[in-house]
Design a protein around this nucleic acid. Structure first.
Length: 423
RNA sequence: GGAGAGUUGGCAGAGUGGUUGAAUGCGGCGGUCUUGAAAACCGUUGAUGGUGUGAGCUAUCCCGGGGUUCGAAUCCCUGACUCUCCGCCA
């Protein structure tokens, strides 16, 4: 949620930036400002009324104390009118407040000035590419066939137990998953992150804090009996640790990492290119999350990019980094880099990490602040990145590393899984 | 799941329906004293919004929501959470 102050004081800047996502937001900003002005007027009126009522109440109290019952009764009669007026004013103010809130939460984050213009994924800009794209043999298999061949994952079994998109990892498939999780966690810990094991179900407040609610309600599994949501990413519980928290400036940046399964309904997303591990309802991910001082958040974003690059290089996977354009960025992000690995048998780039700076957009929803040097509470910046999401890494790894003898495991993972070949 | 108790400022903890945004203690900050520090003493110390150039004024906030009342931290209803006891259980 954008800060109202910002929209009021830097209206043109907000309009310019949001236009990068969609020009229609210029109008929305005007609507916000109009409602805000009306709201402030209504509030002033209500406060004046309330102030009078408070004054009368106080005087009645004094009269009662001094035993002047008649005088008190006289004043009581006067309060009736104020009370009546107050009710209407309060209702009006509440309604405007709600309207303002509704419009305000419908505004996405303002893109950073470096964000490329564009509306679709085709307009994202490749800012970096690394690693050789392997040339596979004629009879190279896509990962869903390799999985069957080596009995690593059973999709049908998962479908029986749960439904489509809930794979059952078996044997070396399961061990490789565990190896990657530990590898990613250890790498993050070595980079200064603190490991967190958060709850996997969160309440609606947490869903709102990081921006999944209300606009992405349909994407999360909702346990309605207890009104809890299954997390779509560890970002939600880990960032919400800092909801309603005022941090000390010297505590920043806070660096956390967590491994969690992620649950996504992916409503409406099923179509082409979703075979095998490409898109799942449940998958594993290691997520890094930072709470930062606004002055350093972009430097920290760069650090996170370097961290993710390091992971992909240690896994010996060809990858590229995309600077997402305004139209393709998520609702909450100010700047996002997507990492994609090249899955050679499918001949496709697969997104394996999304690394973003949310600036104060989430912090404003979370009320995550720090006391600055002037002793004032200031919104922090939040950042996060996948480091990494497992299924597509696995898909790429299986496809790219297939040999007639079996699937070669990258050296970095061998100590973690205890084998160097799947055959 | 059953019964009971509780939730107050950074922390601890008091609170009578009527100048209580809230005693007191600790902590924090400033000062006196000191060569310096400690101790002691004095003062100060919540958040958010509105308004004003500013001192200020004003509204809201004592777990959340609703109600009673001229007036609610205080009374009533409801929800969440915590603790104790009992039951069940990995």
């Amino acid at each position: 949620m954008l800060a109202l102050n910002y929209l009021r004081e830097q209206t043109q800047d907000a309009k310019d930036r949001l236009s990068k996502r969609n020009p229609k937001y210029v109008e929305t900003i005007d609507t916000v400002l109009a409602i805000d002005e009306e709201n402030r007027k209504a509030k002033a009126e209500m406060e004046k009324n309330q102030s009078e009522a408070n004054g009368l109440a106080k005087r009645i109290g004094e009269l009662m104390k001094s035993g002047d019952k008649a005088g008190a009764e006289e004043l009581k009669a006067q309060t009736a009118k104020l009370k009546e007026a107050g009710k209407g004013l309060e209702e009006r103010s509440k309604q405007l407040e709600q309207e303002l809130f509704d419009v305000l939460v419908s505004l996405p984050n303002t893109p950073h000035e470096s964000v490329p213009l564009g509306q679709t994924a085709e307009e994202n800009i490749t800012v970096y590419q690394n690693g050789d794209i392997p040339t596979l043999a004629e009879d190279a298999l896509p990962h869903w066939d390799l999985i069957k061949k080596y009995d690593l994952i059973d999709f049908e079994l998962g479908a029986k137990i749960s439904g489509a998109g809930f794979p059952v990892y078996k044997g070396k498939g399961a061990r490789l998953q565990r190896a990657m999780i530990n590898f990613f966690l250890d790498q993050a810990i070595a980079a200064g992150f603190t490991e967190i094991q958060p709850p996997l179900l969160v309440n609606a407040e947490s869903g709102f804090g990081t921006g999944q609610l209300p606009d992405k309600e349909g994407q999360m599994y909702h346990a309605t009996v207890d009104d809890l949501y299954l997390i779509p990413t560890a970002e939600v519980p880990i960032t919400n640790i800092y909801r309603d928290v005022i941090l000390k400036e010297e505590d920043l940046p806070i660096k956390n990492v967590g491994y969690t399964p992620c649950f996504r309904r992916e409503a409406g997303a099923w179509g082409a290119h979703v075979r095998g591990l490409n898109r799942l309802h449940q998958f594993d991910k290691v997520e890094i999350v930072q709470i930062a001082h606004p002055d350093q958040s972009y430097a920290l974003l760069d650090e996170m990019v370097i961290h993710v690059k390091g992971l992909l290089e240690k896994l010996e996977l060809p990858y590229r980094i995309l600077h997402l354009c305004g139209g393709d960025m998520s609702f909450t992000s100010a700047l996002t880099y997507d990492f994609e690995t090249y899955s050679a048998a499918q001949g496709r780039w697969l997104e394996v990490s999304s690394t973003s700076n949310f600036e104060s957009f989430q912090a404003n929803r979370l009320k995550c602040r720090f006391k600055n040097k002037e002793g004032k509470n200031q919104l922090a910046h939040t950042l996060n990145g996948s480091a990494l999401a497992l299924p597509r890494i696995l898909a790429t790894l299986l496809e790219n590393n297939q040999t007639p003898e079996g699937i070669r495991i990258p050296a970095a993972l061998v100590p973690y899984c205890g084998f160097d070949m799947i055959s």
